[in-house]
Amino acid sequence: MSQKMQNSTKTKIIQVIAEAGLSGGPRHILGLLRNIDKKNFDVLLIVPRGWLSTRAARISGVKIKIVDFKSKIDFKSLSKLKRNIAEFRSSENPFGPIIIHAHGPRAAAFCRLAVRRGEKFVYTEHIWSSFYHIKNPLNAILQKAGLRSIFNRADRVIAVSKSVKNFLVEKLKADEKKISVIPNAIEIEDFEAPKRKNNDLMVGTVGVLVKRKGQIYLIRAFARVVVSLPKARLEIVGDGPEKQNLLAEIKRLGLESKIQLLGRQDKPEKFLRSWDLFVLPSLSETFGLVILEAFAAKVPVVASKVDGIPELV
């Protein structure tokens, strides 16, 4: 079969996400992009500039378009999204099947305005669960209403855990027949057996520094650990708006020599392999991809009993 005929039989998949950092959603998409069968699927990634766009650019057969995706619907980003999708539609096989796969509510809010009749619209929920809360009640009501409109428009909804599915069905009254539970996955080849630095206890965690990730509670708990194990150390990988609050808490507890904030790391797995214990203190966690990474690195895990975490630990 000629290359032209092969291209004409391909299904086009457009992966869209509104964040590009080192959180679970972008890392999940990176795995999808690496493993999708490029012989049968033509793939476009629409994403803001950042970690995901940089890593995805190294994958052969994946086209990338940059769209900022501001926190609210803005006509500039929407116009750019529609233009990128239109160009992809008309390339090589303009009449072939198209799947638009949105990850997270912000990306889906844009995509539902761009998808055409006859195209399949798939939505993956990475964030919402019974433990996920928004302080502003009006904002929470509006976001839930937006989610319902996304569910109504979607041909298929993917929940990354049973906990997410239960929330969508019980709290948002989503159509259960539309929902499939497909857990996230990792490539275990990226992780080797842990390499110990020394005999002292080394504890670590990975995550965006936001309140719902609960790092401040880990810091407070670690203050009690060092009373019994004075040589123990804690490393926190990640960056975010809570950084200054965490640094202030470390200083208040006198733990500057015991706890280190390592910032964002492109390859957090190299730190995982050096830890004796991985802790995930999240207040809300729909899945917990980093737990799988710790398992792959053969590092013991202690994690909060919330959302999808008990399905893993």
Results as ranks from 00 to 15, higher is better:
Met1Ala: 11
Ser2Pro: 14
Gln3Cys: 05
Thr9Glu: 14
Thr9Asp: 12
Gln15Trp: 02
Val16His: 00
Ile17Ala: 12
Glu19Asn: 09
Ala20Met: 02
Gly21Ile: 07
Gly21Gln: 12
Leu22Met: 10
Ser23Arg: 10
Ser23Thr: 13
Gly24Ala: 06
Leu33Arg: 00
Leu33Gly: 05
Arg34Trp: 00
Phe41Gln: 06
Ser60Gln: 13
Lys63Tyr: 04
Lys65Pro: 04
Val67Phe: 07
Asp68Lys: 12
Lys70Asp: 09
Lys72Phe: 08
Asn84Arg: 04
Ala86Tyr: 11
Ala86Arg: 15
Arg89Gly: 00
Arg89Lys: 07
Ser90Tyr: 11
Ser91Trp: 14
Asn93Thr: 09
Ile98His: 08
Ile99Asp: 03
Ile99Thr: 06
Ala102Ser: 12
Ala102Gln: 13
His103Ile: 01
Pro105Arg: 14
Pro105Cys: 08
Pro105Gly: 14
Ala109His: 07
Phe110Ile: 00
Leu113Gln: 10
Ala114Pro: 06
Arg116Val: 03
Arg116Trp: 09
Lys120Asp: 06
Lys120Trp: 07
Val122Tyr: 12
His126Val: 14
His126Thr: 03
His126Gln: 10
Ser130Asn: 14
Lys135Asn: 12
Asn136Phe: 09
Pro137His: 00
Leu138Met: 13
Ile141Asn: 02
Leu142Met: 11
Lys144Ala: 06
Ala145Tyr: 02
Gly146Arg: 07
Leu147His: 03
Arg148Ala: 01
Ile150His: 07
Asn152Trp: 11
Asn152Glu: 09
Arg156Gln: 15
Ile158Phe: 02
Lys162His: 10
Asn166Lys: 13
Val169Gln: 02
Leu172Trp: 06
Lys173Asp: 12
Glu176Gly: 08
Lys178Leu: 05
Lys178Phe: 03
Lys178Ala: 02
Ile179His: 01
Ser180Phe: 09
Ile182Gln: 10
Asn184Ile: 04
Glu187Asn: 07
Ile188Arg: 15
Glu192Asn: 12
Glu192Ser: 14
Lys195Asn: 13
Asn198Ala: 08
Asn199Trp: 10
Gly204Asp: 03
Thr205Leu: 13
Val206Ile: 10
Lys211Cys: 01
Lys213Met: 02
Gly214Glu: 01
Tyr217His: 11
Leu218Asp: 07
Ala221Ile: 12
Phe222Tyr: 10
Ala223Met: 05
Leu229Gly: 12
Leu229Phe: 14
Arg233Cys: 06
Glu235Met: 11
Ile236His: 04
Ile236Lys: 00
Val237Phe: 13
Pro241Ile: 13
Leu247Arg: 14
Ile250Asn: 01
Leu253Asp: 10
Gly263Pro: 09
Gln265His: 15
Glu269Arg: 08
Glu269Tyr: 10
Lys270Tyr: 15
Phe271Cys: 08
Phe271Thr: 04
Arg273Glu: 15
Ser274His: 11
Asp276Glu: 03
Asp276Lys: 12
Leu277Trp: 01
Pro281Trp: 05
Ser282Glu: 04
Ser282Leu: 06
Leu283Gln: 10
Leu283Phe: 02
Gly288Trp: 02
Leu289Trp: 09
Val290Tyr: 11
Val290Gly: 04
Ile291Leu: 14
Phe295Cys: 00
Val299Arg: 06
Ala303Leu: 00
Lys305Ser: 08
Asp307Leu: 06
Gly308Met: 03
Ile309Met: 05
Ile309Gln: 01
Glu311Tyr: 13
Leu312Asp: 03
